[in-house]
Design a protein around this nucleic acid. Sequence first.
DNA 1: CTGTATCCTTAGAGATACTG
DNA 2: CAGTATCTCTAAGGATACAG
Lengths: 128, 128
Amino acid sequence: MAKIKASSHEKNFDESEHNAQGRDMANCPVTTAINVIGGKWKVIILYQLRGQTLRFGELKRVIPKITQKMLTQQLRELEKDKLVKRVVYAEVPPKVEYTSTELAEKLNPALDLLCAWGSEYEKAHQSE
Amino acid sequence: MAKIKASSHEKNFDESEHNAQGRDMANCPVTTAINVIGGKWKVIILYQLRGQTLRFGELKRVIPKITQKMLTQQLRELEKDKLVKRVVYAEVPPKVEYTSTELAEKLNPALDLLCAWGSEYEKAHQSE
DNA sequence: CTGTATCCTTAGAGATACTG
DNA sequence: CAGTATCTCTAAGGATACAG
């Protein structure tokens, strides 16, 4: 995929210049959204956490092909972006639970539409 | 951003293994959708082409910070993914027009929701 | 169990120059 | 006008080993 920095909220348009009467709306927050959920495993993790709390190991088991490093990293970013809440229990052995936040749940309608569109897309391409 | 191959429709789940009763739906086509529109400039280009045909140079002018190389590359991928139609006129000087396809227009509702969510996200983070 | 820390490979992306 | 062709840099992501 593209190189999308997690913390990059940079504008892709130079608003200072008269930008040839292009649609300034193009710089609407879709780009922000894509930046936030565009990570390779983000939507997958988010999906698993829909209305459900999971431990680190459970997530790992449910997403077998993700590495520990990536799981940790993506979770940290999601946490920083306030899409996931992380709760550490002071036990031994350690126990950490991940839950999706309100903000994340608000994403669901959009994800559902994307999911539906993805199906259409796959249908349109399955002939190849 | 994440590394998302344009042509990668690989499964991120190992369906052969009993995957710890994880939600198989997690591997729903959201991931496909993200792969297709996750490119750094894709949604921006798509937005500019909403219900409107533009020439290469017009796109370049409207998205000043994109390089020619990236514009060409992203357009080629969108074309391959059947989201954009490319029409070349046999004139001199050359003239090439880009139009969004039906499939691309079907994405709009999802993009609108993402846009709305992006605004919420920005609000929730502006305090920082 | 839930992580770090390293090392490594690649793909994404920018800059620049050139062309039919 | 609408692109290629190179070159380079960086960051995303994977593999593996180690640790509280």
